[in-house]
Nucleic acid binder design. Structure first.
Lengths: 187, 187
DNA sequence: CGCGACGTTGATTTGCCTCAACGATTGTGG
DNA sequence: CCACAATCGTTGAGGCAAATCAACGTCGCG
């Protein structure tokens, strides 16, 4: 199952061995937490199997989904990870899941000794940043219906697997209103 | 004026010389474009003086501000830059401005020969990503008033210099409504 | 001086939320 | 394996936040 990582970038023997030696494996039941508000995020997490989410809970107790992740995706609170600051976010499993974890000191070690992997992570963040940027644009310019359609287009796999409550929370509307949007789309 | 970059990370003589040799200077009048929809974004742009914005224009002709930039900030459409794809964004100057530009091939050259600078740009993107993430959270969870107050807190310099039309477009409300929010805040 | 941006205000409309209720499905413990 | 609880998706009535449209005074600038 660790081959998943190798698919993403070509590695030589040494790089592969070092990565393998630094990785730990973790199994999560449905609803189990990988990160909770107040924790410091100490790992980069790579999802091997299942489906997860990262979200915030506001003062009223409402959850707001920041990101989903499935097989072959990274899911990490980069802010907390890099600044060693307690996170405001939660990460939990929407389905039984399996993740690979790399600790911060190991990642830094890898960064400094293997520029190729360093560059891989830069590209990773660049792509994540580009997506976030597109999402901000949607948020400030689109209607709920447009946001929903964009979500379906961008995440066709996820849209079948996760509940509308989760989708509603991701695009920033209530589940009731999302239901009405869907109804008007069916017409 | 090129010292601005050096303040951001300690450079040795060689790194400094290489950077200097790869940089070009550009002066912009108020309202002049640095990038327009349909262009491919070919430079990383570092603002030396003035104030700029990056924005999208929707089908109705409404502008939506994605990012502002002032002295010592980078402003670039990273998506278009890295994929050589025509951008959907505009970058123009809100005030007379001066920028330093690095071409893509030069940046790649620097990345491969100077890992330290490579890492500097990774950190740059990480920080930008973290901010974008926080902004998405605001977008899906906060009211217009909260978004406005957050903007004032995050960009105290900018809020004095740029018009409320620009701020409204950044937080995703109409200028009329922002005016009403401000009125109710004065109480 | 006159024009065009800007900020503001008011009246009206609309998109989305809140709350409450209801079947249908899922899941869980006895 | 069944019974009960919990979660989910949906619907409707009513309310509020924000958009739209129109009008107006102010200011900076050519």
């Amino acid at each position: 199952m660790i081959n998943h990582i190798k698919k993403l970038l070509p590695l030589d023997k040494l790089e592969e061995e070092v990565l393998l030696s630094k990785i730990t494996f973790k199994k999560l039941k449905r609803r189990q937490f990988l990160l909770q508000e107040g924790d410091v995020c100490r790992h980069y997490n790579f999802i091997v199997e299942g489906c997860m989410r990262m979200y915030m809970v506001d003062e009223k107790g409402t959850e707001h989904n920041l990101q989903f992740g499935e097989k072959n995706w990274w899911i990490t609170d980069i802010g907390s990870f890099h600044s060693d600051v307690p996170t405001q976010l939660f990460i939990d499993a929407l389905e039984p899941s399996e993740v690979l974890q790399i600790k911060k000191e190991d990642l830094i070690f890898i960064y400094t000794h293997f520029p190729k992997i360093d560059r891989y992570f830069r590209v990773l963040i660049e792509n994540a940043f580009i997506k976030m940027q597109a999402r901000v644009l949607q948020n400030i310019s689109a209607t709920a219906e447009e946001k929903y359609l964009t979500f379906l287009k961008d995440y066709p796999n996820l849209s079948n697997r996760i509940s509308q409550i989760q989708i509603a929370s991701y695009i920033g509307v209530t589940p009731e209103f999302l239901s009405k949007v869907r109804r008007s789309l069916m017409k």
